[in-house]
């Protein structure tokens, strides 16, 4: 038994401070991203969600270049970008082009920052691919508090958010301030993406935002169940990914570990593909007709 355990959890897994911190932070962001992601998928804003992580990366690169910290850059740029995308693209078709062009502008600047950052060896890789094992322990309480705040906000907004995400027109007619809710949601998304990108890397936050949520929405047609399910799936993928990455230090070819991001994105995609085998329930169909 012990041998199996030590085979699964390589020695020192739970006593390593970095690992414990990574498990905690990874868990926190997976839960928030899963919950916010359900609405991102429902509202068809995956591109915006992904774009924010890229723009957050631009901010982080700029902030590092100016001697600041990555956190401030990630959060401030993704929030500004979220507001811009929301303001510029009202209609869905517009939104695609608007998101693309805002992303072009910000990422253009970001690539310049990142380029200058390359003089700091590894900075672009850190920003793009994340560094869950090296995150600053002093940030943990701040990031956890922010995550809690967002979950509370979502709980408060829950019903109008569901209503306006499922059918904006009806919600508007019933007096829900659809535009305002959309804007607040966009900011929520921005903060959540910024935080996720900081921890697991801008290039991978998209996986945690979209993957668990779309998997959950395949398995249940009730939003109230999809949200905890998505959070759970996200948590599972993240922890399993961290475990595998820790174990992989003994794997070929380089002998210095495979990146966490590879495992997390792989698990997320695998679970999503598996969920597509699940038969789509009849009640969903009946509604769609």
């Amino acid at each position: 038994m012990n041998r199996i355990l030590s085979f699964v959890f390589a020695p020192g897994f739970f006593s390593n401070e970095q690992v414990v911190n990574a498990l905690w932070l990874g868990g926190v962001i997976a839960v928030v991203a899963g919950a916010v992601g359900v609405f991102t998928v429902l509202r068809g804003q995956s591109f915006a969600g992904h774009a924010m992580s890229d723009m957050g990366a631009a901010g982080a690169a700029g902030s590092l270049l100016a001697g600041g910290t990555a956190v401030t850059g990630f959060l401030s740029f993704s929030v500004i970008a979220g507001a811009l995308v929301d303001l510029l693209g009202v209609r869905p078709r517009d939104r695609d082009v608007a998101t693309g062009l805002v992303l072009t502008a910000v990422l253009g600047l970001g690539s310049l920052f990142l380029f200058f950052d390359t003089r700091v060896v590894g900075a672009p890789e850190m920003i793009l691919f994340g560094s869950i094992f090296d995150s600053e322990p002093s940030l943990t309480p701040i990031l956890s508090g922010l995550a809690l705040l967002m979950l509370v906000l979502m709980l408060i907004l829950y019903r109008p958010l569901v209503f306006s995400s499922l059918s904006a027109e009806t919600a508007g007619a019933r007096g829900v301030p659809v535009r305002l809710i959309g804007f607040i949601y966009m900011l929520l998304l921005a903060v959540s993406v910024g935080e996720t990108a900081l921890i697991v890397g801008s290039l991978l936050s998209t996986a945690l935002l979209i993957g668990p949520a779309s998997t959950a929405l395949r398995l249940t047609s009730r939003i109230g169940r999809a949200i905890p399910l998505a959070a759970l799936i996200g948590l599972l993928c993240t922890w399993l990914g961290i475990l595998l990455a820790y174990d992989s230090y003994y794997w070929p070819p380089a002998g210095r570990g495979w990146p966490v991001s590879f495992f997390i994105t792989g698990l997320v995609l695998a679970l999503y593909l598996a969920s597509r085998m699940w038969p789509q329930g009849a009640p969903t169909r009946a509604l769609a007709d």
Partner: peptide, 12 residues
């Protein structure tokens, strides 16, 4: 009446 076009349309 609303026509829903997505395949992932849900009930609350």
């Amino acid at each position: 009446g609303e026509h829903c076009h997505g395949t992932e349309v849900l009930s609350t």
